[in-house]
């Protein structure tokens, strides 16, 4: 450092160099702090991302389990649906059987009721027989003693006629009672008509089958909905997992930055030392040969910078090269330009 007259102000120059050394020390310390802080931050970010990554792995497992459950649910719904269809057919068949049986019984009742006409005929015969017996009794009385025996027979015939008439009434009452009971059991007439008929039964059973079928269908629809949701969730989680992997890779910047800054710190240390050498030279305690180290420090700093620039060029990692190695090369080598090289 020289004034206009060309006189070196050694005192001021050495003072300035000392301050510069202090400044370099401060800069070095600050860069060290930057390294620590970025390392701490990167570590925290990575821990967080790893936590998310672990959670996504758990979600993927959960999604797979959910898929399994949904498949089981759908299988169950399909089974219920098929059983419901089978039950509907069975019910229709049973209803047909019951309906046919009811019709047969009703026809039987009609036939039994038709016996009333035969009973009426028996009654008519009994009345005619009773009239004949009465006539026979009159004729027997006219015959006097000779007709006495015939009179007894006429009495017996009239008695038989009465008994026949009585038996016919008893049978009529029995038929009425039996047909009434049968109709009651079949639900024909009266308040229970609707409840007991095969048609009502069929209606109720079909309604039950329809409700069962509807429930099974709802279950199947729900299963499909859940399956869709599970698939969407799996897609999202897979996407999230891919993103966390990218973030984890990006966090490598911290290591690159650290090495770069550490290189600069080393160079600044060297520069600081060489400023001391320059100061010593100005004070006359070091010869000019000692100044050559200053150039070396600048070169080191320059190399560090160039190296950092080269890494930026290599930023798009993923290209693979091989320099004639046995490990199945994919790309021919142009060594310095590739980020991945197999020897």
């Amino acid at each position: 450092m020289a004034d206009p007259a060309g006189v070196v102000d050694t005192e001021k120059s050495t003072a300035l160099l000392a301050r510069s050394q202090e400044l370099l020390g401060i800069l070095t310390g600050q860069l060290g702090d930057v390294v620590s802080v970025t390392e701490e931050a990167a570590f925290g970010v990575m821990e967080g991302v790893l936590g998310i990554d672990e959670a996504t792995s758990g979600l993927l497992e959960l999604s797979a389990e959910l898929d399994g459950l949904v498949a089981q649910c759908q299988q169950g719904a399909d089974t219920v649906l098929a059983a419901s269809d089978d039950a509907s057919e069975e019910v229709a068949h049973l209803v047909g059987v019951v309906t046919d049986r009811d019709a047969a019984v009703l026809e039987l009742i009609g036939q039994v009721r038709s016996l009333d006409q035969d009973i009426e005929a028996v009654n008519a015969i009994a009345k005619t027989t009773a009239l004949l017996a009465l006539n026979a009794k009159i004729e027997a009385a006219r015959a006097g003693e000779a007709g006495r025996g015939f009179s007894v027979v006429a009495d017996e015939v009239r008695d038989l006629s009465s008994q026949s008439s009585l038996a016919a009434e008893t049978i009529r009452a029995g038929i009425a009672r039996v047909t009434g009971l049968m109709e009651e059991r079949l639900g024909v007439g009266g308040e229970s008509q609707d409840v007991g008929t095969a048609a009502y039964l069929a209606q109720r059973l079909e309604a039950l089958a329809a409700a069962q079928r509807s429930a099974a269908q709802t279950l199947a629809d729900s299963g499909r909905g859940i399956e869709g949701a599970a698939r969407s969730m799996a897609t999202s989680v897979t996407s999230l997992s891919g993103r966390t992997s990218q973030v984890l890779a990006q966090a490598q910047f911290q290591d690159m930055t650290r090495q770069s800054v550490e290189g600069i710190v080393g160079s600044l240390d060297g520069l600081s030392g060489n400023l001391g050498t320059l100061r010593d030279h100005l004070e006359g305690t070091a010869d000019s040969a000692a100044l050559a180290a200053l150039d070396d420090a600048v070169e080191t700093l320059f190399a560090s910078y160039v190296s950092a620039r080269q890494r930026q060029v290599h930023g798009s990692a993923g290209r693979v090269s091989s320099a004639g190695a046995s490990h199945a090369p994919e790309v021919a080598a142009t060594a310095p330009a590739v980020a991945i090289e197999l020897f």
């Binding site: 992997s245 890779a249 490598q252 910047f253 290599h314 930023g315 990692a317 980020a339 090289e341 020897f343």
Partner: peptide
Amino acid sequence: GATGWLVKPIQADA
């Protein structure tokens, strides 16, 4: 005796 040279940063797939 190294087998290969990989430059940071590197993605998982690569």
